[in-house]
């Protein structure tokens, strides 16, 4: 048994332009391209990047919820190609949604919601009621919660229900899309600690999608940074935060507001917005916002440079290290 759980190689996703309308004749919009990434058993990988960078699309592609246009996927040693391959990975992978409360059906009690995955995947659950209470206990919710409905839950409780649902089918991989968005720091810590406990207990792997760098620094073993659908830097968390090599990673870390008034920034770490996906810049796609861009950046796409073991950056000048953070 190898320790690789998920391998993504050269992944590309194109969407037909024009939304729901028939796309014949219209050019496809490229959302993700050349994404190569792997996840080991028991590892937590943090996927970061600005809004619209393609984080959710990547997760959907891995689960077969989004057709891919290039590349290969492998889960637990087996390639993911056919519909039945993806059905199999969906049974062993749980997705925690960006908005926990809204993703729960308002007409389903908490007890029903946590065992719903058995129904969806037609898996035998045995005694559903007992199973529901087990799952609630696992995430630290008292049994009387089973009778509650989503609108009667606090934000933190709704997240716990989301975690319980994710655990129902004893997954190998949990993909958590912004698992603590909108929560207070204290409740956020409770959810992250719960996820860490469950990881230890069940040997789970996590793919955590977030734009909260302060949080991901504490929980991820490795970080992958997406910009406009390309991986611009991947590496061990401690190294990425101590010595970020890609100017985009440096800017992201520097942009994070620091909870200390003595560390206020006079200037802005990063200006402007992500260029529209329809107007991808030439050369290095970050050059329009990059503080160190030179001529070559405007004309030529940079290759992925190896910085160290498992640490890569897609930049022409990965040695021009500014101190991050």
């Amino acid at each position: 048994m190898t320790d690789e759980l998920l391998a993504i190689e050269g992944l590309g996703v194109d969407l037909p332009s024009g939304g729901w309308l028939p796309s014949r004749g219209r050019p496809a919009i490229n959302i993700l391209s050349g994404v190569t990434l792997d996840l080991k058993r028991g590892e937590t990988l943090g996927l970061v990047g600005e809004s619209g960078s393609g984080k959710t699309t990547l997760a959907r592609a891995v689960l077969g919820l989004q057709p891919i246009s290039a590349g290969t996927l492998r889960f637990d040693g087996a390639p993911l190609e056919s519909g039945s391959d993806f059905r199999a990975i969906r049974r062993r992978t749980a997705l925690m949604f960006q908005d926990a409360a809204a993703s729960l059906s308002p007409r389903m009690s908490v007890g029903e919601a946590v065992v719903e995955p058995f129904v969806i995947h037609r898996a035998p659950a045995g005694d559903r009621r007992a199973k529901a209470l087990d799952l609630l206990a696992e995430v630290g919710l008292p049994p009387e919660m089973a009778a509650r409905y989503p609108h009667e839950l606090s934000g933190g409780q709704a997240r716990r229900v989301g975690v319980a649902r994710a655990l129902a089918l004893k997954p190998a991989l949990v993909i958590a899309d912004e698992p603590t968005a909108g929560l207070d720091v204290s409740v956020q810590a409770e959810i992250l600690n719960l996820m860490a406990d469950l990881k230890d207990r069940h040997g789970l792997s996590y793919l955590i999608i977030t734009h909260n760098l302060a949080l991901i620094r504490h929980v991820a073993d490795r970080i992958a940074v997406l910009y406009l659908g390309r991986l611009v830097e991947t590496g061990p968390t401690a190294e990425i935060f101590a010595r970020p090599r890609h100017p985009y990673t440096q800017s992201l870390i520097a942009a994070e507001p620091r909870p200390d008034p003595r560390l206020r920034r006079a200037d802005l770490a990063i200006r402007g917005e992500v260029p529209g996906i329809l107007r991808r810049p030439t050369g290095c796609e970050f050059h329009t916002r990059c503080p160190i861009a030179r001529d070559i950046c405007r004309s030529t796409a940079p290759a992925l440079h190896t910085i160290g073991t498992g640490h890569f950056a897609r930049c022409h000048f990965p040695e021009t290290t500014k101190k991050g953070g």
Binding site: V185, S186, A189, A214, H218, V219, E256
Partner: peptide, 21 residues
Amino acid sequence: ALLACDPARIEERSGRLPAIG
């Protein structure tokens, strides 16, 4: 307590974060 559980104020990386409970 609120300041103590802000992950941005915690230098040391640890698998567990403080919470108020």
